[in-house]
Design a binder for these strands. Structure first.
Lengths: 189, 189
DNA sequence: GTCTATATACCGATAGAC
DNA sequence: GTCTATCGGTATATAGAC
C-alpha cells in the first residue's frame, strides 16, 4: 500500500469489488471504505463512475499484457504457451468457483447494461484471442488459427461459468485435462 | 395477453427484462410500465422482488421441462435429442448475441449478489445436466455420462459468452458444427 | 488533497382511499 | 384489484470549507 498512489489504490480496490460483486452493484461508498477515503474526495480522482471503470479496464489490459509477455519469456514453445493459458483455470479455480471469470462476467454485465465500455472490456478478450491465435499460427495453422483461438477461449469461458454455478473443482480438473488432450491432438511434431 | 392473468403478465415481463437488463438492474417501475400497472399495485401480486424472482425461475423451470418433454417425443434417438440441445445455440443466436444465455447470465449475476435464489437458478442448469446425462446413459455411457453432459453444457455456455462479447454469428455456426462433430465421435452404431 | 454537507434521483416497500 | 401518495434508504454527483 505504501508505494501506491491514492488513485492506484482506488483502481485496485474497484478492480476487486467489480469482480466480486459486479460493476453496477459496487458503490463508491464501498470502494471508499476499502481505501479509507470519504465519498466526496472520490470525485477529485475520478469525475464519474464510468471513468473509474475505464481505468479498471485499462489496468486489467496492462496486467494481462504483462502476463502474456511473461509467459512468452518463460515458454518459447507455442504449445506450452497455450497450456499456460489453459492452466489459469486451475490456478484461479478458487476465485472462478466463487466469482466466475473476471473478463466474461464483466462483459456479460456491461452487455446487459448496454454500457459504452463494453467495447473496451471486449478488448480483454481480444487480447487473449490474438495472442492465442499467434501461438496457433506458430504451430503451423494459417486460416483457422483464429478459429482455434476462439475455441480455446470459449472452452475456458464455459468451464468458468459452470464451475461458478456448481462450485465443482473436480469438474474444472476434468475439463482442463480434456482441453490439454484436445490440444495434443492439434500438435504434429 | 388476453388469456393471461395479471400475475402471469408480470412474470412474463419480468422474465424478459431480467434476461435483457439483468435482475438487479430491472426495477419494479420498468416492469410496471410494460404491464401497464402502477408500482403500488405490484405488491398485491408479489410481496417482494425476491418473490418475483422465485416465480420467474419457477416459470423458466416449467418452460424448460416442457421443452425437454417435447424434444423427447419428437426425437426417440438420444443422440438426436442431444443435437436438439446443441442447436438451440443456432435457434436463439440473435438473443444470445445480444444478451448471452439466460441461464448462465442469471446464475453469474446471482452468484455475485450472493443471492439466496442462486440455488434455484442453478436448478435450471441441473435440469439440462440430468437430461443430457440420461441421453448419454442411453447411448451406452455409464460412469462418465454426467461428465459428458457437463462438457456439452460447458461448451454451450462458452459459445454463448463469446458470441455475446463479439456479436459473431459465424463463430456460433463454427462451434455448433464442432460440437456436432464431437458428438458423432462419441456415438458407436 | 481531504473533508463534511448536501442536491437530486431512484430504489424497494407500505398505507390507505376507491 | 387498482390506484395515489409517501416513507426510508441508498445511489451518483456537487459545493465549498479546511
Amino acid at each position: 500500500m505504501s508505494g501506491k498512489t491514492t488513485r492506484e489504490q482506488i483502481i485496485a480496490a474497484a478492480d476487486e469489488l467489480f469482480y466480486h460483486r459486479g460493476f453496477e452493484q459496487t458503490s463508491f461508498a464501498s470502494i471508499a471504505d476499502v481505501v479509507h477515503l470519504s465519498r466526496g474526495n472520490f470525485y477529485h480522482h475520478f469525475k464519474a463512475k464510468d471513468d473509474l471503470l475505464d481505468a479498471v479496464i485499462a489496468a486489467r489490459l496492462a496486467d494481462t499484457r504483462a502476463m502474456l509477455e511473461r509467459w512468452e519469456s518463460e515458454a518459447p514453445d507455442p504449445a506450452d504457451r497455450i497450456r499456460k493459458f489453459i492452466d489459469i483455470l486451475l490456478i484461479n479455480r478458487a476465485d472462478i468457483q466463487s466469482y466466475g471469470c473476471p473478463v466474461g462476467t464483466l462483459t456479460s454485465e456491461l452487455a446487459k447494461l448496454d454500457h459504452t465500455a463494453l467495447g473496451a472490456a471486449g478488448g480483454l478478450f481480444t487480447l487473449f484471442r490474438d495472442w492465442l491465435g499467434e501461438q496457433f499460427t506458430r504451430l503451423g495453422y494459417r486460416d483457422d488459427a483464429d478459429d482455434l483461438a476462439m475455441h480455446v477461449l470459449a472452452a475456458s469461458q464455459g468451464v468458468a461459468t459452470l464451475a461458478n454455478a456448481f462450485h465443482d473443482e473436480q469438474f474444472i480438473r476434468r475439463e482442463v485435462q480434456r482441453l490439454h488432450d484436445w490440444l495434443d491432438t492439434h500438435i504434429d511434431d
